[in-house]
């Protein structure tokens, strides 16, 4: 018993070190953002003596992060709204309505889940260019919607399939059409799943760089992640300003993580343990 307790502590030490290694890189970056260039060059590790916001301000205004940030917010909001609307409608239809070809559609949706973006990106960009959608907000929003929709439908359908048909039958007897059932039953009851899926999709879209790089070639339409990669070349000699840009991009994610940690983990693991 005593031996077991000691061995548990022996395991806890490397695990604590690993936890430190997980958090420290971000702490280092935040600390670098608070230093003057001179302080950073003299000693990278020492903690900044005061909270200095000049670098953040430079990154936000001079380096143009504000613009990139706004672009990201527009695109993420649009894509998440589209994903939740289309995903919940399709998820409801696939889990509760009987119609010809529903099985085939569900299988097609699953198949799309396994087509990685890299495989379709070349023809996709060409299709987008042909329809004049490249370098526009709707174009990038559509690209994200297409990318994360199969996963969203899958999660919504599996959540909705747990809602018993007695409830939808009762709503129909009360005179609701299928659309009424969707609006009055499925949307309100699906709120927890919509929230989880929405948060996860927001993270995916916010964090993406490859799709944004392909779909938004002009500098004024850069999303925040693409903007951060361009800061690196611009501020290679001014690490504190570069670190500030990285921090600006990371803080919203950090905030979302602290609020929705459990939901994110649950949504990620949904479907992994089902036989």
């Amino acid at each position: 018993m005593r031996g077991a307790r000691i061995s548990r502590w022996l395991i806890a030490v490397p695990m604590a070190l690993l936890a430190l290694a997980t958090i420290y890189p971000l702490v280092f970056t935040g600390n670098a953002a608070m230093k003057t260039r001179r302080d950073y060059i003299l000693d990278r590790f020492a903690f900044a003596d005061t909270l200095r916001w000049d670098n953040i301000a430079t990154a936000w205004t001079t380096a143009g992060t504000a613009r990139y940030f706004a672009n990201s917010v527009i695109v993420v909001a649009g894509a998440v709204a589209m994903l939740l609307l289309l995903g919940s409608m399709a998820g409801f239809a696939l889990s509760h309505l009987r119609f010809r070809g529903s099985r085939a559609l569900f299988l097609g949706c699953l198949a799309a889940l396994f087509v990685p973006f890299q495989v379709i990106m070349v023809p996709l960009v060409r299709t987008m260019a042909d329809t004049g959608l490249v370098d526009t907000y709707p174009g990038l929003i559509l690209a994200y919607t297409a990318q994360y929709l199969p996963f969203t439908i899958y999660l919504m359908a599996s959540y909705y399939s747990a809602i018993p048909t007695e409830i939808t039958d009762a709503a129909r007897i009360d005179g609701n059409t299928t659309y009424g059932v969707y609006r009055r039953i499925m949307l309100p009851m699906g709120r927890p799943a919509l929230l989880s899926v929405g948060v996860l999709n927001a993270l995916f879209c916010w964090n993406d760089v490859l799709i944004a790089l392909l779909m938004m070639p002009s500098a004024e339409h850069r999303t925040l992640m693409v903007g951060v990669t361009s800061l690196r070349g611009q501020y290679s000699a001014d690490i504190p300003t570069f670190a500030s840009g990285v921090l600006i991009a990371a803080v919203p994610v950090l905030a979302v993580y602290l609020f929705f940690q459990r939901r994110i983990a649950d949504a990620v693991t949904a479907g992994s343990t089902k036989g």
Partner: peptide
């Protein structure tokens, strides 16, 4: 109604995911 509900999703997936694969 089932088709109306599912059509937008199918359209997006087919146009921007499955069709490009073949293309």
């Amino acid at each position: 109604s089932p088709f109306v509900l599912i059509a937008p999703a199918v359209l997006v997936i087919v146009l921007f995911r499955l069709w490009p694969l073949l293309l």
